[in-house]
Design a protein around this nucleic acid. Structure first.
Ligand SMILES: [Mn+2]
Ligand SMILES: [Mn+2]
Ligand SMILES: [Zn+2]
Ligand SMILES: [Zn+2]
Lengths: 146, 146
DNA sequence: GAGCAGATGATAATGATTTTCAATACTGCA
DNA sequence: TGCAGTATTGAAAATCATTATCATCTGCTC
């Protein structure tokens, strides 16, 4: 169980930024550090948070997420489903493949693609600040000819 | 001036789907087929439309855009600025580089990247239905070392 | 433990997009 | 060309996710 550690890391980032460590923030940060069910949206987090402390409000969830994002502690993604989804910014950069049937989010990374992107931007006279690469697909059915 | 032709093409697609060719639709389609100022959002289109026919309403703009999208006549993009942006689905597939300072949208295409995406999805057991690749950057300043 | 700035919850506000619904205008047909 | 019947429209209200307001509360420093 690395839960405690990851959670503490987020709290440290918060503290370092001069923010106060409040009860709601403890709960929200703990949820973000949880292993299963990644890329939750604000409502997902809110629902889980309420289970731990029924007084927590949705605005506080949003406010905490915003602070964490500004601190670079978490990342916000806007997949094509309206809401924003969040994930701790721990690991290295990666992009996402979204299962259109289940909604599952699969992470991947291609150094080749990353480099090609840089190359393209350079040729166009630009410097990439950030990018977004999302693949939307469905599981390949068995019988693949060829 | 290919304007007339492009516009007519969109109208044909509409007609083919059994939709009625109304005055507002003519105006909106004409605007979408215009050459300059591409990737307009609904409000952009609405403002231009009102100039041609002050009776046109925003909901009608949205409704027409939706019909056109369902017909595959136009594509909707959700760049990271809240609103959706539209463009005729005429040409070949391409991705976008957004100038973070000016908001300019530059189109590009990399067959290599497209193939790498397919490869990655296949390895993960998926078939790509569609994808989204957006580069956000700023113009590279002169003095580039190296 | 007191004091105060920052944080919270309840509630209203936003902004983009969609829905409702009565009035209107395309279209195919007489 | 005239009409009926239905798709489409405009005005206004509703949605949805997210943010702002503001009075109250609470970490945190001394
Ligand atoms: Mn991820
Ligand atoms: Mn484009
Ligand atoms: Zn990437
Ligand atoms: Zn592409």
């Amino acid at each position: 169980m690395t839960t405690s550690t990851d959670s503490d890391h987020l709290l440290d980032l918060l503290k370092a930024s001069g923010a106060r460590i409040t009860k709601p923030r403890r709960v929200i940060v703990r949820i973000l550090a949880e292993k299963g069910g990644q890329h939750p949206d604000a409502m997902d987090i809110f629902r889980r948070a309420v289970r731990e402390d029924s007084r927590i409000s949705l605005p506080t969830v949003y406010r905490t997420l915003k602070v964490l994002e500004e601190q670079g502690a978490i990342q916000r993604h806007a997949f094509s489903d309206g809401r924003s989804r969040y994930e701790p910014a721990a690991g290295e950069h990666h992009d996402h493949l979204i299962d259109m049937d289940t909604g599952d989010v699969i992470e991947f990374h291609s150094e080749k693609i990353e480099q090609l992107q840089e190359e393209i931007a350079r040729e166009l006279g630009y410097e990439i600040v950030h990018h977004r690469l999302e693949l939307y697909g469905r599981k390949r059915k068995a019988g693949k000819r060829r």
